[in-house]
Design a protein around this nucleic acid. Structure first.
Length: 261
DNA sequence: AGTACCACCTGACGGC
DNA sequence: TGCCGTCAGGTGGTAC
């Protein structure tokens, strides 16, 4: 789940959960969900207000009053929940932030691919990890410029976090579907106008998904995501949706609506 | 430098 | 019902 819209939802969840509250330590249930030497100690020692909270791409950053910055990544199966006082923690809870008043902010991951790490600053982190600016902050010109330098497929380009960050496998499929572009199309084969439309469409889709809390059940039936399975009907033309591979990742395509050129 | 591919870890699901 | 194989929306490292 966790692509830009999902992580944006988690940011809002965290904001709401932490607002007006103070943290008193974070319980680490599974150290494998942590990265870096001092992360465990720092999490356990957290005291006071948590914030600001920032998001860039799929990364969520938050600062603690006394232990500095942390970054959260959600991998394929992570999420963040605000659990009220007395309520049971969800399965696979890995790190639990205790808040004043008894509520908790809980970091949950199933498949151990997500991580929390103690870091110096978000700026240093994104520069070290080559994480490009958030897709929301990219303009059409820079999008086109980067695209024109890219020699791979358009899907891989959209998913490359080093240029612009936030788009993953699911939303890249949606963006390409709504743009009528085949995921295997070479980025270079797209006209400047097509790239401009693609960029605009991508922003619109991401914004809309955030509005709908990244919940696929609230997405329109005209979107691919609800039909993103092999053999389902294309919501536009009723052809069968095909499952293809792109760079080792599954890519769902309507063979009639999406053309390679 | 840019791109392509595999490995990582464990849960969910479909087929037998 | 239970076992097994396959696949999963993430990134990072390595090999071209």
């Amino acid at each position: 789940m966790p692509e830009l819209p999902d992580v944006e939802v988690y940011r809002k969840t965290a904001l709401r959960c932490l607002s007006g509250k103070k943290a008193d330590g974070a319980a680490v249930k599974d150290s494998r969900a942590l990265k870096g030497k001092n992360t465990k100690k720092n999490l356990q020692g957290i005291k006071g207000r948590l914030g600001p909270i920032k998001r860039q791409g799929k990364n969520l950053f938050f600062k603690s009053e006394n232990r500095g910055w942390f970054v959260m990544h959600f991998g394929m199966t992570g999420r963040l929940e605000c659990v009220p006082k007395g309520a049971k923690e969800p399965d696979y809870s890995k790190v639990i932030f205790s808040l004043s008043g008894g509520s908790k902010l809980v970091y949950i991951v199933k498949r151990m691919l997500g991580k929390i790490e103690s870091i110096e600053s978000p700026a240093e982190y994104v520069s070290e990890k080559h994480i490009g600016k958030d897709f929301h902050d990219t303009g059409p010109d820079e999008f086109r410029n980067e695209a024109e330098k890219n020699s791979g497929s358009i899907k891989q380009f959209l998913m490359d976090q080093s240029k612009f960050s936030g788009i993953g496998n699911i939303y890249s499929d949606e963006i390409l579907f709504q743009s009528g572009i085949h995921p295997a199309a070479k980025t270079k084969s797209l006209s400047s106008a097509a790239l401009g439309r693609l960029h605009k469409k991508a922003l619109r889709i991401l914004n809309y998904a955030v509005e709908k809390e990244a919940d696929p059940e609230k997405f329109p039936g005209t979107w691919l995501i609800p039909s993103r399975k092999k053999g389902a009907e294309c919501p536009k033309c009723k052809a069968h949706v095909q499952k293809t591979k792109s760079g080792g990742r599954s890519a769902y395509v309507c063979p009639k609506c999406q053309k390679k050129n």
